[in-house]
Design a protein around this nucleic acid. Structure first.
Lengths: 336, 336
DNA sequence: CTGTTAGCGCCTTCAG
DNA sequence: CTGAAGGCGCTAACAG
């Protein structure tokens, strides 16, 4: 049995209240007493029980994170940011992976309770209006990372603007026949793909270029599907000279598919992604960078703020996007 | 304020003991009473406090996982296995990312305590003999996933055998000049690279082939380093016809570096990795597969077992390795 | 400044 | 089968 606060108190010849005070860094303890208690704590290798403390204070010393599709590289980066900040602040974090919205409600309600965690992060949660209604309010402070929820502070990016940036980059390089490859909406509410597509369309529209419907490829978030789409694109009578991918994931597949057909990147085909995952750098892929690690870190800080001062009006912080031009984009091939 | 067990008891017209009993599925409750209590619980949307339950039972209803370099793809897969099994068993898991052994001790001692979690998983922890001594014993049941600790149940693979398998595959294809590219030991104790290298050497030795020292490239776990090493290898007067990479990570870099030099894979150079990450499939990379998701899942189950029956003699389970021959390995080019 | 005491919400005897 | 009561370890409010 590990020593309890009472053991420490007894050995130090003080009351438990005093020990508790030094534990919580209360100024109401004489330096002398504090030193003694600290010594005893050290001697006995005592550490306070989180459980008991939690019961007493009414809140667990842990943060909860509900992450959509946790194993994707982007979610991982966000998670890393969250963990770093949380652990610096002395919080552990409980993790919950989620794959669809039906889970979501249960997960959120099951985890984001005062007896389980002091605060919660909703990562990449894009609920529909109806989802929101079903979610209700949370008994613990919550923030969103990569997502917006009315009444809840959070971090988000402008996906539409990002899609537009990607496309404009291509247009500036001289491309006119540009295709889009993306996936269907996320299982949880509206995904970013659709918004990025909207941005793509806007850029094309602004430039006065048409977007034939065969140029827009939307399918499941699977390698084979994107592969197939790329093949269809490249097999067209009038193939595109560039592709805007909804994410680096798709961009990679497009590049692979092109390679297999001996279509040179960027000479024959320019490709731009979205996210700037590690692999984008490796593959020399042009992309629209969104802050991943940073969004996790800032999200965690935001949560800490909210926990510190409840009742603040919710803040929605937009994270900046950045175009990263690398070797996968270049001017279109000379017409002939 | 959420309802407490007392509220439920009152409303149901029974004692708290009875409510507690139905909560814990004790058979000592009449069906009639049970039904009533259940109804009230439903009505009041009551859920028991984990904190209080933990204080009372002396153990938290959470598992702790200390993961080395959590964001690597392989660690992620393991984590996924752990989370899936844990959540099926009704456990949440607290995550701790660790990057060096100095952290490790603190992390382990700070997290693996009865007041914080009911059991712990040490993922990819490869301690030196000294580390082990410094770690001491844990007050909660612990298992290792991808690692061995004396006196602690766990899952492991035979890295040496794996290195040997990879090399033998190449030898069977007819290669004689085979190089090895790997990284330095993990920050935490001995890494797998060295063992895989040993297996590689053994296979070469058994086949009677020499391994010139320039054929063995060990450096930091960084893309640029592996890139540089590959370039050195390919620039040799007598370059290797095949490369055994310590991990898929290195194999990918080797392939990229080769491509940049217009060295065809597998026509001019065969490459085999280790792990079988998702990307290995995408890249058509031959590799030695180690069970990743599975090791996490089985590790979690093992932990559950150990928690259920403490005092069992520790079990060390070896996970099977499997050679996956894909398109990155082929017979060596014809001599000329 | 410090000791004492009452809970926090639940589980677990112990009588009934 | 079931109600009542003690205690898990800690914090916070209250007298000194």
């Amino acid at each position: 049995m590990p020593p309890t606060i009472a053991d420490v108190a007894e050995r130090a010849g003080v009351g438990v209240g005093t020990v508790s005070r030094v534990l919580n860094e209360s100024p109401l303890v004489s330096d002398h007493t504090r030193a003694r208690v600290l010594t005893v704590i050290e001697e006995m290798d005592y550490y306070p029980s989180d459980l008991a403390r939690g019961l007493s204070t009414g809140t667990a010393g842990v943060l909860g994170a509900v992450v959509q599709r946790m194993t994707t590289p982007s979610a991982m980066q966000r998670l890393r940011g969250i963990l770093d900040v949380a652990s610096d602040a002395g919080f552990d974090v409980i993790l919950r992976n989620v794959n669809n919205v039906d889970d979501y409600r249960d997960q959120v309600r099951g985890l984001l309770r005062p007896d389980r965690c002091a605060g919660g992060l909703l990562v990449s949660f894009k609920p529909s209006a109806e989802d929101i209604k079903r979610l209700g309010t949370n008994p613990v402070p919550v923030v969103t990372v990569d997502g917006q929820l009315p009444g809840v502070s959070g971090l988000f990016i402008d996906d539409e603007r990002g899609g537009q940036m990607a496309c404009e980059h291509l247009i500036e390089l001289g491309h006119q026949r540009i295709a889009f490859v993306g996936d269907r909406d996320d299982p949880i509410g509206f995904g970013p793909s659709r918004k990025r597509l909207a941005g793509f369309r806007k850029a094309m529209d602004d430039a006065g270029y048409a977007v034939p419907e065969q140029y827009v490829k939307i399918g499941a978030h699977e390698r084979l599907v994107a592969m197939q789409h790329t093949n269809e694109l490249l097999g067209l009578e009038q193939p595109p000279t560039a592709v805007v991918a909804a994410a680096d994931f798709h961009a990679m597949v497009v590049i692979d598919a092109a390679r297999l057909r001996s279509v040179a990147i960027p000479d024959d085909l320019s490709v731009i992604g979205f996210d700037d995952l590690d692999m984008a750098g490796y593959l020399d892929l042009s992309t629209v960078r969104q802050p991943l690690y940073e969004s996790g870190a800032r999200g965690a800080r935001l949560l800490l703020d909210v926990m510190g001062a409840r009742g603040l009006p919710p803040r929605h912080v937009e994270m900046a996007l950045e175009l990263v031009a690398r070797g996968s984009t270049a001017p279109p091939p000379i017409k002939r």
